[in-house]
Structures are given as C-alpha cells and as structure tokens.
C-alpha cells in the first residue's frame, strides 16, 4: 500500500528476517486518571476492550490497547476505523478531564517476521528479550539505536515496531542492517 501522506511505496527488505513497513494504523493517545472508575468505565465502553496491565498490550481482532505509562494508553485500530473510534471515545468521556489525540500521522510501524526476530531486536534495543523473559502480550517502550521506539511480539516469529514518522527512514535502515543475511547470531535457535 502507498503511504497515505507521502504517496511513496512502502519500504520492504528481505533479510534473514523480513522487514516491512506496515499499512498505516489508526493510533489514538488517551491520557487521564485511569484509577477513576467513571473515567475508566466510560473509556472501556467506548473501545470495547479491557485495559492492559502494567506494560501489557491487549490484542483483539482489529484493535489493540497498549499501556504506555501510568496515565497513558495507546489505542490502535485500522486506518479506516480511527475517526469513528475517536468520535466514540470523545463522546463517551464527555466533559471528564482527559486528553484524546489522533496521533496516527505521527507514527510509522514496521513488521519484523522470521524465526530470528528476537535477535534483530536484541541487536538494536537495550532490552532483555530472552524467550521466557519477554513474551507476546508485553509492550516495551525503549530505544532502537538512537531513536525512541516501542515494540511488541505478535508471536514467536513476528514483531511490530513503532517509531516517529520523522525517524522512520533511519529506523528502516537500521532494521535492514540488523537483518542483513550472513549476520545471524543464532543465539536462541
């Protein structure tokens, strides 16, 4: 799919792990007091998914909710759904004190796929991603090389990485370098 903002063909690289730019996702940042019951209940009703626990990501069919910080959630949906979802959240929260922003255009998402997917992440991020320590269901905000990013494992052989659009090109290039055939470490396989 073409990038809706730039009209450029999505980036793709076949290394020992496949790196590809994901179709744009709808992303909505919600900040507020999640300890407040009226606030949390209204939001839950609008998005129809349970809140994730500490550093968790709730995976549903088309939408996901990710824990970003004690007062921040990121709601991911398809590009087409985001406007409706945004309206639903704003309507449900009414006058409750909250920040709801559509940040879809600010981000770029990459999919890493292949048996050595953990290795590519381990090369770039200062995170213990050993099987058993980091498993699907957890989201980790960290840095990849020199830029801030977040990632989670969809399965043992697939991961998603989100970063800012402005550093998307850098992110693709470093993921590509990390996934270059011949640079396998085979630590976990």
């Amino acid at each position: 799919m073409l990038d809706p903002l730039t009209g450029i063909e999505a980036m793709h690289f076949d290394g020992y792990v496949t790196v590809s730019q994901t179709d744009p996702l709808g992303m909505i940042t919600v900040r507020g007091n999640f300890a407040s019951k009226p606030f949390a209940n209204a939001l839950k009703k609008a998005i129809g998914i349970d809140f994730p626990g500490l550093r968790q990501i709730t995976l549903a069919d088309t939408s996901m909710v990710a824990w970003m910080s004690p007062d921040e959630l990121l709601i991911l949906s398809t590009w087409e759904d985001k406007t409706n979802l945004m309206d639903a959240i704003q309507k449900a929260l009414g006058k409750k004190h909250a920040l709801v922003v559509d940040v879809s255009d600010a981000r770029r998402t990459f999919t890493l796929a292949g048996p050595n997917v953990r290795e590519v992440i381990a090369k770039l991020a200062p995170v213990d991603i050993t099987p058993g320590v980091f498993e699907p269901g957890e989201i980790r905000r960290t840095r990849f090389g020199q830029v801030a990013a977040a990632f989670w494992l969809v399965s043992q052989e697939e991961a998603k990485v989100i970063c800012f659009r402005s550093v998307g090109d850098y992110m693709f290039k470093q993921l590509k370098a990390a996934a270059t055939p011949g640079s396998e470490l085979d630590i976990w396989n």
């Binding site: 910080s69 004690p70 200062p126 995170v127 905000r141 960290t142 840095r143």
Partner: peptide, 12 residues
C-alpha cells in the same frame, strides 16, 4: 518505579 522496567542508563 513507574513502569517497573529494569534498564540501563542509555534509556534514561
């Protein structure tokens, strides 16, 4: 203390 992550100083 907020997200419980053990991380090295380049993340801070």
């Amino acid at each position: 203390p907020y997200c419980g992550v053990h991380a090295e100083e380049t993340e801070f």
